[in-house]
Nucleic acid binder design. Structure first.
Lengths: 247, 247
DNA sequence: CGTGCACTTGACAAAAATCAAATTTTGTGG
DNA sequence: CCACAAAATTTGATTTTTGTCAAGTGCACG
């Protein structure tokens, strides 16, 4: 399950954009922030762990002993409300990190949405490393700013009143993240199920289903299968994404 | 409007909790993270600026030339949607910072909710300072983690379906922030108007008004005046805050 | 080739949005 | 300090939308 000094020649990776430097690539394109040397040093204290789809990696409230950095796969950060309902705070992809917390306790639970491979960095080893390396810390700051922005955009989505508008914004997020990872964007790939989507956009499962149907009926998207969506009418799509109101 | 080497003996302050250290005060209590020396060094590159209530401090999309640190007053971070509607991403209080951005551009607009005094730190001077000082960066990381958590809790609120439940969560946030600033909590003080609240919780203005009324009628809160709310029935209050559903 | 889970669809009720009007509060100039 | 105008807030009536509950449908996996 774990191996020190992984044979992988790279080591932990943080994909993000710089807080201040005007884009050195395409706008919105996320680049590897860490230098090879930083990655190699982090690899020294990291082990590689794997999780099966559906596995809970940690739960909110547990002591935060490790920080994780995703190599492959997708996880969801969620909080359980009463009555069995969950709220998904975000989906995390390769190059993302999770496990930074509050007063030594995790604030979200994390579950693997797909099979996941990740670096695990013990806080006890990471913390002194961080305090020695201002460059590394700067990159962590960039990554946190990005996550903060993403969380705020999520809030923007959640404040929408129209189901279609929420769903379109969600698809837009997924498309942008896909583009930021330099993956092809002719189709949007959705690694999570409809139930996860409903918990992320804050609507009931039937409402998500109906919103997909409505967008399809209006010729705005095409759903090849549950996980593959294509935007057919880009103009109407962007209009719905931009407007709180559905004209 | 600006003064170098302010007579204020302190300098910029970051209130937050440590990411990893188990609370060294009361849980949730935010402490000054920066050392006197750090604050003094930051004061060297800071100027003090004042804004009138309602003043726009910057707009989304502008070049992010400055980072701000609030001394007194309250600001709101917001994004404008079409049709004149705004969404408020968060309220910021003394000890909070704003202006960290993406690729050199601000991602939110900022407006003063009350008269505001703040330190202004030019990015051109702050950036080299940051890269020299790992301790300062660590504190910025702690502050960003706190903001990220707050944004996620905001998302949690926005995902609620019951107006009363949203409003109760909002009041809970304000109460907790008040407590974290070590202010008395016998009453919750609301510096923003009803319209700001409606834009933060993602409901219409009449819905906010009716939710206040409903909570008052049920004896859960008492509204002394627009800005002062007292929680009368703590148990019912916490129940509403915890449950998506209003029993 | 069935069984279960994920998803869709239908009917209805509940909740809040909207539009509009009334009322209270606040700020300003005399 | 008061009167007035403007702004903020509350209230009312109606409509829209989505949540809820329940019953299908179909795909995936053993």
């Amino acid at each position: 399950m774990a191996a020190r000094h992984p044979s992988n020649p790279h080591g932990p990776a943080l994909r993000a954009v710089d807080v201040w430097s005007p884009a050195n690539g395409l706008p919105g394109k996320m680049n590897q922030m860490l230098t090879d040397e930083e990655r190699a040093r982090l690899a020294m204290i990291a082990s590689i762990v794997r999780f099966k789809k559906g596995a809970v990696i940690y739960r909110e409230g547990e002591p935060s002993d490790n920080v994780f950095n995703i190599i492959s796969g997708v996880v969801k950060a969620y909080r359980s409300a009463r009555y069995g309902r969950e709220h998904i705070a975000g989906f995390l992809f390769p190059g993302d990190m999770f496990g930074l917390s509050e007063e030594g306790k995790y604030t979200n639970s994390i579950k693997a949405v797909t099979p996941v491979t990740a670096y695990r960095l013990p806080v006890s080893l990471l913390r002194p490393r961080l305090s020695q390396d201002a460059g590394l810390e700067y990159h962590v700051i960039c990554k946190l700013c990005q996550e903060l922005r993403q969380a705020q955009r999520h809030g923007f989505l959640l404040a929408r009143r129209q189901a279609r508008s929420k769903l379109v914004m969600f698809l837009q997020f997924m498309e942008q993240l896909q583009a930021a990872r330099s993956e092809p964007t002719s189709e949007i790939y959705l690694p999570m199920d409809r139930s996860d989507i409903s918990e992320y956009v804050g609507m009931s499962l039937p409402a998500v289903s109906r919103a997909f149907l409505s967008l399809t009926t209006d010729g705005i998207i095409r759903v090849r299968d549950r996980r593959h969506v294509k935007i057919v009418d880009r103009q109407a799509f962007e209009r719905l994404a931009a407007n709180p109101k559905n004209p």
